[in-house]
Simulated scan of single mutants.
Amino acid sequence: MKKIVLLLLVLSQIAGAKVLTATYEVSFGIFQTMGIANARMEIKDDQTYTIHIDAKTTGIAKVLSGNRIEIYDSRGTVKNGKLIPDTYSKVRQTNSKKVTKIYTFDHTNKVVWKETIEGKERNKEVYDFYAPEDILTLFFNIGLYTQARQDKVLHAIGGSGKDGRIDVVFPNPKALKEMQKEMDTEDGDFMKVVLNDRIFSSANGELLINLSRDGLCNKAVLEDVLLFGDIVGVRVR
């Protein structure tokens, strides 16, 4: 069930505003809503930012995951309109277990420190690789990278477990028409985001994304998962 939250994170791409909140729902094929995420982004004095997302499973996913709740938080500075993270944290909690991971960025030395807290145990170590962003800031900054509508390779903590790689791919005219049909709209912008990690039966975690003209993600689709069809995430407010 943890991969549902990755989809919720992709849906939480937020437009450039001082304060913005949004709520998303995720459904899986024949099942009802399986996850809900509430996202909030705030920029103070054009100098610092906070992004906070709390995501929880619902319905059958809640039962199967032991009432799984996940909380994501990114804090840092704003430079030339770009978010630069200082810390990124995630909390994963079920009825029986709670694990907190805190990532601290040392951009000068290109090192990321990872601290894991589980019960009374705490462990801090240098993370496997350095990336200039976390997955929350990456999706906020994505508009800065894709203005030319060219495919882009990015890296973020929270992306591929190997090196954080995330690919942003713009469709050619034929693929665009197919994507618009899949999304049931021709409005907004369309792209494919490849997380380079397995999400259920999807080998690379390829997501179809529809961004509204205000920069918010309206819908994301992970196609042909297991035996039940698509995982679909939709902004509800």
Rank of each mutant, 00 (worst) to 15 (best):
S160T: 08
R165A: 04
R237V: 00
L7Y: 07
L136A: 04
K124I: 12
V99G: 03
R235K: 07
S27V: 10
T21D: 12
A148F: 10
I142E: 10
G215W: 06
L154G: 03
V10F: 03
L154R: 07
K114L: 13
G119V: 07
G66A: 02
E133N: 13
V19G: 00
I157D: 03
V234R: 05
T58D: 09
T108N: 07
R122G: 05
V169R: 13
T87K: 09
D184W: 11
T137L: 03
V153Q: 15
K110I: 05
M34T: 15
I30P: 05
E125A: 12
W113L: 09
E25N: 08
T23C: 01
F170P: 04
A61R: 05
R165H: 02
R213L: 05
Y130R: 08
I36F: 09
D184E: 14
D86V: 08
P171N: 08
K219T: 09
F228R: 10
N67D: 12
L176S: 00
S202M: 13
E125Q: 14
K101F: 04
G188A: 02
R68M: 13
I199R: 08
R75N: 06
A37S: 14
P171M: 11
R237D: 06
K79A: 14
L8G: 13
K62H: 04
G35M: 00
N218P: 00
Q180K: 09
G233E: 03
E25T: 06
M1F: 10
N123P: 01
K3M: 09
K181W: 06
T116Q: 00
Q13D: 13
L138W: 02
K82W: 05
T57Q: 11
M1I: 13
G59M: 01
I142K: 05
D187M: 09
I4Q: 10
E223F: 05
D46R: 06
T48C: 00
E133M: 14
I71P: 01
T48E: 01
R122L: 11
F140D: 13
Q32S: 15
I43E: 10
V194K: 13
L20F: 06
V99T: 11
N196G: 02
D45N: 10
T137H: 02
L207Y: 11
K219Q: 12
D230M: 02
L144N: 13
M34N: 14
G143D: 14
